[in-house]
Design a protein around this nucleic acid. Sequence first.
DNA 1: GAATACCCCCAGTAATTCTATGCCTGTATA
DNA 2: TATACAGGCATAGAATTACTGGGGGTATTC
Lengths: 277, 277
Amino acid sequence: MTALRAFEAAARLGGFARAADELCVTPGAVAQQVKALEEWCGAALFERRAQGVVLSWVGVRVLPGLTGAFDALGAAVGELRQAALPGRLHVAALPAVAQLWLSPRLPAIRAALPDLEISVSALEQPPNMAREPFDMTVFYGDGAGLGIARDVIFPVCAPQLAGQLETVEDLAAVPCLSDAVWAQDWPIWLAEAGAEVQVSGPVYSLYALAVEEALHGAGVLIGHGALVSRHLDSGALVAPFGTRAELPRWLEIGVRDGALSPPLRALSRLLAGKSSL
Amino acid sequence: MTALRAFEAAARLGGFARAADELCVTPGAVAQQVKALEEWCGAALFERRAQGVVLSWVGVRVLPGLTGAFDALGAAVGELRQAALPGRLHVAALPAVAQLWLSPRLPAIRAALPDLEISVSALEQPPNMAREPFDMTVFYGDGAGLGIARDVIFPVCAPQLAGQLETVEDLAAVPCLSDAVWAQDWPIWLAEAGAEVQVSGPVYSLYALAVEEALHGAGVLIGHGALVSRHLDSGALVAPFGTRAELPRWLEIGVRDGALSPPLRALSRLLAGKSSL
DNA sequence: GAATACCCCCAGTAATTCTATGCCTGTATA
DNA sequence: TATACAGGCATAGAATTACTGGGGGTATTC
């Protein structure tokens, strides 16, 4: 059973490490389960190569059925959760999105939809909606989902720091904050701005933390439109330069395939409709 | 996961005890799993009544999807086993059938189909083919499957004992062997024979054991046609009376729904074709 | 009014699964 | 050519999970 899950994930994702990631276990655990399954059925499911594993013929043959079965199981579990407590919604979002975009909107949404109980989980990677018990996701994606806003980046900083920034080249003289997983943001924007200057500064593992530091005047942050607009509106942050770089990705809402339940439809409408905030 | 299995079985079979039976665990284990699932999803899946449990509205709603998902999983596992080792067949049969009917036929079948590796498991109850990894079952059923022979019962005994049996009433004077799960055999046959006589004798939990005892002259056994015909042919047992009671059930072969693999087709043809033996 | 057939609860135990570690192999980098 | 690195293997011990076995309760059945 567990072995089937491990095999399905490894086969679908093409590696034990990735499967381990999805299943939230160590690669060793996946390897063990796959090996147990191979012993049970008496045939090799993968060919082991130095650079990873590739599906054997038997594996190729059984993967579609297995994937379909697990998807059906995931759908049944989702149906169970919804039938049990129709007003409960569970949203998964990138930590930065959850804290900087979703969280400020929740009070108004909870007031508008008082019968809903909305839970939020912060995840680094978008979950597999067909398997995990989430009702909605808010992540940056390639535009396949329900788009909220294009991701645009531009430097932002506390107002008192903006006086030091006359030209783009002045950035070399101040700390330039950035996020670890979005390490390319500064180079991309600098290229867009046509600047040759090298910038440097502290790197944060949590974007919200970098925003916090920028609010306190710790440096210039490379801001993401949707995540800093609130502070731009309030004046707590300002954008010292006019140049904006558009990234090829959108902040978007994802829902399970199939019929949207009324509460889910109401929530997604509220979230998508307020994109201009 | 385990909880989903437990719930599905309990809901489908209408009781924790029956589910426990199918899953080969104690009823307490099923109750625990179902309770855990109810706590996880936050709604009652069953209504507890004194005479058992009945599905709640939520339970009714999610059962079909869950059953379908588990069936799909079972089918995928079956596909895996077959793809891994196409020549391996696993037959489930009633212990008596396995020992007295199937086992004598296997040598000839193995000779005819040398590429097949045929395993046999003795089970008291027919397994759920959609879930358990069996390729074929041989049980007594109501005629829905591939019938082999109608179940007929009649007394049989060792030849030296037959001399003591002039009339049906003489049965009261000799030990009348019977099987624990087929306790009604003697009353049914006696009613068919129109006799008022009361018979008694040792009861066996294993029909094959009762046959063995009858061969040794320990008493008169209520014989099942398919299970004693071999000994009647060899003369090791004789039927002292002409009356035969036909039971409303047939010895029959069951296979998974869908396409029969060539090895399975060959095996079922051999087994069904040799029913006259 | 016993016997039966269910299910509930709890504590201890048994089984499974996971982590942690060191090792190996082939690829990519310097 | 040397060196890091990514991915998988193997084992033992640890943690989690699931199961058993006991006692108890409540309706139906004969």
